[in-house]
């Protein structure tokens, strides 16, 4: 089981500062949600950790070992990326066999079992698969490799609802049977919310948040009711945003709802992970 320490990581692509001084620790045996808007720097961060691209400055340590170009450290990681790094002419089964060469604990039986469940044709070439099935092939490969830390970059891209549900279920089953660190980057936050134990939010290349999802849920709440009552309540509190509909208003407020004295006339709701994410990244 492995811990990843990211220290002062920065990366720019020309004039675009993709990552700026990111410091983060990914603990062992935890499912992380790596969240951020498009272009926030999530894929860049994952690619750097997995040695697919190189940072301009900063350091990454895996179990205390610098990871840059270090097979001992990198061998503990696997990344399911958006881009396909295998030869497109390779068959799915050949991709599994290739990965099995690199990961000593690769579970080929499990990979074939999942392929059957997803109805993935393992004799098909990768380039002939649809976007969805290519993602499935990569997901199965990632789940079967049994690496200490597995990164999923947009794993459900192109998947239908059934397949997405299958993925979440299988990820949890895998995690329960063989604990590891999963880092899942996704835009479908609400779907993945049940899976994620800890959320890391990146905004404009900087680390905005690194918290347990339970703690995040208590970071804000919404109050709804008559506009005047809501305004009255919201005075002196940190309002993230407001929605108005006729005489009714909803205010999204930062803070712990349990420590507040909220009038009975107002309806109070906890903020979902997605809502909090939207408000945090909008502000």
């Amino acid at each position: 089981m492995s811990t990843i320490e990211i220290k002062n990581l920065s990366k720019s692509f020309g004039k675009n500062q993709a990552l700026s001084d990111v410091t983060l620790t990914l603990k062992e045996n935890c499912i992380y949600g790596l969240l951020g808007r498009n272009g926030a720097g999530k894929s860049t961060l994952m690619n750097i950790i997995n040695n697919r691209i190189f940072a301009d400055s900063g350091e990454i340590l895996i179990d205390g070992i610098p990871s840059r170009d270090n097979d001992k450290a990198l061998g503990k990681l696997h990344m399911m990326g958006e881009q396909l790094l295998y030869a497109p002419s390779l068959k799915v089964s050949e991709m599994f066999k290739a990965a099995a060469c690199f990961y000593p604990e690769y579970d080929m039986e499990y990979a074939m079992k999942l392929s059957e469940e997803y109805k993935l044709n393992t004799k098909a070439k990768l380039q002939k698969l649809s976007t969805g099935y290519r993602s499935i092939a990569k997901i199965i490969n990632a789940l079967a490799c049994n690496a200490d830390v597995v990164f999923f970059d947009e794993p459900v891209l192109g998947l239908d609802a059934n397949h997405r549900d299958m993925f979440y279920r299988q990820a949890i089953e895998k995690y329960n049977s063989r604990p590891a660190t999963f880092v899942i980057s996704t835009h479908l936050i609400e779907e993945a919310a049940g899976l994620i134990e800890r959320a890391v939010v990146i905004k404009d290349g900087r680390l905005l948040l690194d918290e347990d999802t339970e703690a995040i849920r208590s970071m804000g709440y919404s109050v709804s009711g008559k506009a005047s009552l809501v305004d009255e309540f919201a005075k002196g509190r940190e309002v993230m945003s407001e929605d108005t509909l006729g005489g009714l208003k909803t205010a999204y407020i930062k803070g712990d709802r349990f420590s507040e004295n909220i009038p009975d006339e107002l309806e109070v709701q906890p903020l979902s992970l997605q809502s909090l994410f939207i408000h945090l990244t909008n502000s």
Partner: peptide, 16 residues
Amino acid sequence: AEFMNAGAANGVSRTT
């Protein structure tokens, strides 16, 4: 290129 990419996909350094 394929070998470099396959290595990058499977936790292997460029040198290796």
